Amino acid sequence: MNSNTNEKIAFSLLILATLIVTGFVLVILAYIILNGYGAISIEFLTQMPNRMMTAGGIFPAIVGTIALIIGSMLVALPLGVMAAIYLNEYAGESRTTWLIEMAINNLAGTPSVVFGLFGLALFVKYFDFGPSILSASLTLALLILPVIIRASEEALLAVPNEYRESSLALGVSKWQTIRYVVLPAAIPGVVTGSVLSIGRVAGETAPILFTGAAYFLPRMPDSIYSQFMALPYHLFVLATAGTNISETRSIQYGTALVLLIIVLGINLVAVVIRRHYRNKLKI
């Protein structure tokens, strides 16, 4: 076979793989929407749960999930970006750098339940934060830190060296070059890593199970030291707590649909931000 034939075959396989993945995503979305849209209402989104979560709304779980996303990103995003800047811009090739990179890789491959146990031991017990939004947010921040570091590193590596050299040639300091030239150019890639992290934070159950998620809490948390409800744990309990599946089926899929909408909504905002910065770079 000539090169043109090989190229056509490879291109066809890539298209087929893309269609298969897209098909699976659409099937999952359609299944959740068809089973969950009937439960969506103003009352479902704004009321407290009752009858041990087999009736009522999911408002505390929505607030708890959003609080976890905000809390974990406030910790993980600056730490991850700063770590990536150090590794990419300041740390040279050395044994210490190699050890740091290996630690990040190992952290990325650690099961989420291990993070939950670590958060229980460190934040809940040792620092005495108790089962709370703070403990869960810090645990989730550790969970997503490797994703943000890796995405930020790749974004920084994608910035052409000409940007750095031109800035330094004008007498600008290295830190000012990173802050005003390199980092703005890398923001679209950093936002991509943040989007992946938000999706993982919103969907994790094991870490919050150990660090503060409540089984049934028909009230709002009053501080970061309060226990909370969260959509993924709410969904987990509905599916596994021995309740009547036929009675809670619509609530289960309604909860899954709300969680999906929140993640997609935040991702959409992140895409808009990324496109804004890409357009600025083109100007």
Rank of each mutant, 00 (worst) to 15 (best):
V114G: 07
V114R: 04
V114N: 03
F115I: 01
G116H: 06
L117W: 12
F118I: 14
G119H: 05
A121R: 12
F123W: 06
F123K: 01
K125H: 12
Y126I: 10
F127I: 10
D128K: 13
F129V: 03
F129L: 08
G130E: 09
P131H: 02
S132M: 10
S132F: 10
S132A: 14
S132I: 11
A136D: 15
A136M: 15
A136K: 15
S137A: 15
L138W: 06
L138C: 07
L138H: 04
A141P: 00
L142P: 09
L143M: 14
L143Q: 12
L143G: 11
L143R: 09
I144V: 15
P146F: 13
P146Q: 12
V147Y: 06
V147M: 13
I148L: 14
I148V: 15
I149L: 00
I149G: 00
R150Y: 13
R150H: 14
S152W: 00
S152A: 00
S152R: 05
E154F: 07
A155P: 01
A155C: 05
L156W: 01
L157A: 10
L157R: 12
A158V: 07
A158M: 07
A158Y: 02
A158S: 13
V159I: 05
P160D: 05
P160H: 04
N161V: 09
E162Y: 03
E162I: 06
E162W: 04
R164S: 05
R164Q: 07
R164N: 02
E165K: 09
E165I: 09
S166R: 06
S167W: 05
S167I: 03
S167K: 01
L168I: 04
A169M: 07
A169H: 02
L170F: 02
G171I: 03
G171T: 03
S173T: 01
W175Y: 13
W175S: 00
Q176M: 13
T177M: 04
I178R: 00
I178H: 01
R179P: 02
R179M: 06
V182T: 02
V182P: 01
L183K: 00
L183G: 01
P184C: 06
A186C: 06
A186D: 00
A186N: 00
I187V: 13
I187K: 01
P188Y: 04
V190P: 07
V191C: 09
T192C: 11
G193K: 04
G193V: 01
S194E: 02
S194A: 05
V195D: 06
L196W: 13
L196F: 14
L196G: 08
S197L: 00
S197R: 01
I198V: 15
G199S: 09
R200D: 08
R200N: 10
R200A: 09
V201G: 11
A202N: 05
A202R: 01
G203V: 10
G203F: 14
E204V: 08
E204Y: 09
T205S: 13
A206C: 10
P207N: 07
P207H: 06
I208S: 14
L209H: 07
F210D: 03
F210V: 05
F210P: 03
